[in-house]
């Protein structure tokens, strides 16, 4: 069969590198800056994941179709994250809404409405 596998020696070297990276990520957790901390942690995790994928999972011997399949999930995930966060990152700041006269009046308006139409605010749903 044409399939190749990683040699034992490479396996041990990669494992050593993974342990070093593990120690690095724990040390890097001391970074006080929240954003920088995330970036460093994710970078180290990505390098570890790539080492596992390329060496342990033998992707370096794989054909282009397999490599495409490897990439597909991660590309899909990036699409999900990017477009979803495009919503969260650009939502109107809530403090503007909360300080607007309409929002401030909302609880009173609800109470008045509940007095007028108690049936609409009755708890529980009949089945």
């Amino acid at each position: 069969m044409a399939a190749h596998v990683t040699s034992s020696r490479s396996c041990y070297i990669v494992f050593g590198a993974l342990l070093v990276l593990l120690v690095l990520t724990v040390i890097a957790a001391g970074i006080e800056n929240h954003t920088l901390g995330i970036i460093v942690a994710l970078l180290i995790a990505t390098v570890k994941a790539l080492l596992i994928i390329v060496y342990f999972m033998n992707v370096r011997f794989a054909d282009w179709v397999t490599r495409l399949a490897v990439a597909a999930g991660f590309v899909g995930l990036i699409v999900l994250l990017a477009f979803m966060m495009s919503d969260y990152l650009t939502r109107d700041p809530v403090d503007e809404i909360e300080t607007s006269p309409v929002t401030r009046a909302a609880p009173e308006a609800f109470e008045a409405l509940a007095l007028l139409h108690p049936e609409a605010f009755a708890p529980g749903i009949s089945v």
Partner: peptide
């Protein structure tokens, strides 16, 4: 081999959804 890799792509998306929820809430 290819079948397992494609299955793992679905797993990436499955766990990835939880990571997406994590990202939104951590933000």
């Amino acid at each position: 081999n290819l079948g397992m890799w494609i299955f793992l792509a679905t797993e990436v998306m499955f766990f990835g959804s939880l990571f997406a929820a994590y990202t939104a809430y951590r933000y």
